[in-house]
Amino acid sequence: MDWQAFALTLKLATVTTVILLMIAVPLGALLVLGRSRWLALLEALAALPLVLPPTVLGFFLLVLLGMRTAVGRGIAGLLGHPLAFSFEGLVVGSVIYSLPFAVQPIVAGFAAVDSSLVDAARLLGAGWARLVFSLLIPLARRSLLAAAVLGFLHTVGEFGIVLMLGGDIPGATRTLSIVLYNQVENFDYAAANRTAAVLLGLSVAALAAIYVGGRPRGGRRA
């Protein structure tokens, strides 16, 4: 069992989830509270990573973040190294790839909050920040939880982008899904089974823990 890859995968998923929530909460609030028609376009863009196959998305990022584009050179100048084949590169790829999985539940959760409450809060002079932090987030906390869980697990299981953008460097970009793929491709099915079992066990345990924590006493419909 490759514990280095295991730790790296958890680190990648955790960092990605934190960044995802930092992006998806304000974005979700903007999409739900905002009135501009252009927001529909923004919402469509936020869902776009679902359309592209991960390997294709990874390829585009590889080209976009490469040293042949101004974007790639700019980032390399800031970080001191190119983004591809680095942990930071995987974080960027994962955030883009998992964005819809965080944005969709949050938008749905915020939109489900009774609009008369939002109107009342506005009449009482609540600003955007107050609306989001005192009203929307507490009332839509299950949706936030769902967004975090989906974003986390989607990153744990991510493969295509890591394959294209990672370069399979132990400790930096070799995640569990890459280890698993390598084991299968090398006909080492016994090791692959062990890796898959760890991956599945981890996911079930994490999900169960979160759902137990998020479950109101006396059942969900109490």
């Binding site: 590889l62 040293m67 584009t69 591809a84 084949f85 370069g167």
Partner: peptide, 9 residues
Amino acid sequence: AQFVDSGNA
């Protein structure tokens, strides 16, 4: 080859 052609390696 793609890694090199895209300027990443």
